[in-house]
Amino acid sequence: MLELIHFNILSVLLFSVGLYGVLARKSAILIIMAIELMLNAVNINFIAAAAFKHGGGLFTNFDGHILTIFIITIAAAEVGLALALILRIFRNKSTVNVDQFDMMKL
């Protein structure tokens, strides 16, 4: 029988994989991709919690879905801005390796 805990464990697994990607990779674009994985883990968690909810309580039955819509919106805005920044830095430094993004070092 499919229960809430299955979806929670799936989302925790996906979040950990994304976290590893953010910490271990050096290419800025790969870090953006890993952040997308983490955001999707959170979305799965929200929708599962909303779908397995009993009536009543502080939240209505659709709050999880609506928060997911907002997260998807913010993720789209975030990817657009982050990739614009990466393109800008690539134009100045000719690399996307985050170890060489040291312009603030004196």
Binding site: I5, N8, S16, V17, A49, N61
Partner: peptide, 28 residues
């Protein structure tokens, strides 16, 4: 990341939210 995985899984298994959750999926 493995530590985060273990911590979050353990806290999910002990959470009240899981125990109080419905066992059927309500469609949206």
């Amino acid at each position: 990341s493995v530590l985060v995985l273990i911590t979050l899984s353990v806290s999910y298994f002990q959470s009240d939210v899981i125990r109080n959750a419905s066992t059927t999926i309500s469609p949206a």
